[in-house]
Amino acid sequence: MHRLLPALGRAGVLAVRRLGLLVTLLAAAFAAVALLPGDAANATSERGETTTDTAARRAALGLDRPLAERFWDWMTGLPTGDLGTTAHGQPVTSVLAGPLPNTLLLGGLALAASLLGALALGGWAALRPGGRLDRTIAVLATAAFALPEFVLSIGLLLVFSLWTGWLPAVTLTGADGAPASWDMLALPALALALPQIGWNTRIARAALADQAALPHVRAAVLDGLPRYRILTHHMLPGALPAVAIATATSAGMLLGGAVVVETLFNYPGIGNVLAGAIADRDTPLVAGVVAATGAAISTLLLCADLIRERVLGERP
């Protein structure tokens, strides 16, 4: 393996590392479900079912085999796109076909909002370091990041749905399983984005502060260049790797928070699917959700690593 990695180049090394992390995460998902009390055969048993029927279903689901063997069989089908079969006999890919794009849409909107909000607030604060505006933004950013998603969701529901009636409180789905209208995405996306705006604002502000101390930035200030030009042309390019890494990291937190937010807003995403899969002890479905979301997060992290490599020329 060590002889192979140099031939792959930096991008290949980063990709192999992300792939190894994803495999570890999938193994942890299998082990976590196995540690829960009960199994899929018991969780999905019907009323009046005998012990013999439950044992037969347990054998049909392969739950009588060692965990490592079941994990290996599931992993061998992963390269072909086969995520296995749920405890209810449905292909995992068909179960995720509708909810996954909805969650990626919601997460993408929240991620874009968090990036734009963090750059705007972080840059605004960086233009007046140490001032009242800088301190105010720092306090608000910390408060936003500290609030759990379910608290923000309830607050947004009270203000924008119950008190003002500006936005719908729940998400209705159309014939294709997607949200029936775009305004139904506003509150869930905002509930996910606000904590990450707080997190990324602090990262962006710190990265821009580091850039402000560099000689070429000080020279630009002494030359009398406008503040916005110093920010966009001299400070922001150097801060981009830190912002990219923070944004990619936010993707994982966004998808984690989506489980709570989607439930509160009745959003048709993988949050509800994952909650049901855990209740059913449905290991293939849980692993399928982890594989899909983990692949998306790993791709974003790989892109952020490549941006860092490109800008800073650092080795992974």
Score class of each variant (00 low, 15 high):
198 G>T: 08
268 P>A: 04
277 A>L: 12
165 G>I: 10
289 V>E: 04
5 L>I: 14
163 W>R: 15
311 V>P: 03
35 L>N: 07
208 L>R: 02
75 M>T: 13
55 A>W: 06
311 V>R: 09
133 L>T: 15
262 E>S: 04
79 P>E: 10
223 D>N: 10
211 Q>N: 11
243 V>S: 05
280 D>A: 15
105 L>T: 14
216 H>C: 07
188 P>R: 03
109 L>H: 01
8 L>S: 06
9 G>D: 11
230 I>S: 08
95 V>Q: 05
148 P>M: 08
243 V>K: 00
91 P>G: 10
12 G>K: 02
6 P>I: 10
21 L>N: 14
296 A>S: 10
315 R>C: 00
288 G>P: 01
316 P>D: 15
25 L>F: 10
108 G>H: 03
100 L>F: 02
289 V>A: 07
164 T>K: 10
306 L>F: 07
293 T>R: 00
268 P>N: 11
144 A>N: 01
30 F>K: 01
199 W>R: 11
114 S>T: 13
241 P>M: 11
255 L>R: 01
282 D>V: 03
149 E>K: 00
45 S>P: 02
217 V>S: 07
263 T>C: 00
86 T>N: 05
231 L>E: 06
168 P>K: 04
244 A>D: 09
199 W>G: 00
136 T>D: 11
194 L>G: 07
177 G>I: 02
104 L>W: 02
253 M>R: 05
290 V>D: 09
283 T>R: 07
247 T>D: 04
29 A>G: 05
207 A>T: 06
83 L>A: 05
108 G>I: 03
42 N>C: 08
5 L>Y: 06
19 L>E: 13
261 V>Q: 03
97 A>G: 05
162 L>P: 00
244 A>S: 13
2 H>D: 15
293 T>M: 08
141 A>F: 12
23 V>L: 15
248 A>P: 03
150 F>W: 15
265 F>T: 06
272 N>V: 13
131 G>I: 12
170 V>G: 00
197 I>S: 03
231 L>N: 07
303 C>G: 14
91 P>K: 07
26 L>I: 13
102 N>W: 00
156 L>R: 01
33 V>L: 07
124 W>R: 06
288 G>W: 01
307 I>C: 10
168 P>A: 10
81 G>H: 07
239 A>L: 10
297 I>K: 01
64 D>Y: 07
8 L>W: 12
240 L>W: 06
303 C>N: 02
192 L>T: 09
202 R>N: 12
21 L>C: 12
234 H>F: 13
208 L>Q: 06
54 T>Q: 15
187 L>W: 03
3 R>S: 14
308 R>H: 11
246 A>Q: 04
144 A>H: 02
15 A>T: 08
189 A>Y: 06
158 L>M: 12
35 L>H: 07
190 L>A: 14
234 H>V: 09
107 G>E: 04
61 L>Q: 10
128 R>S: 14
287 A>R: 02
286 V>W: 04
274 L>M: 14
65 R>N: 09
287 A>N: 08
119 L>A: 13
59 A>H: 11
236 L>I: 12
39 D>L: 08
51 T>V: 14
263 T>A: 14
40 A>N: 07
9 G>E: 11
274 L>T: 04
93 T>Q: 14
209 A>C: 11
190 L>N: 04
241 P>F: 11
87 A>R: 01
104 L>H: 02
57 R>Y: 12
67 L>G: 06
212 A>K: 04
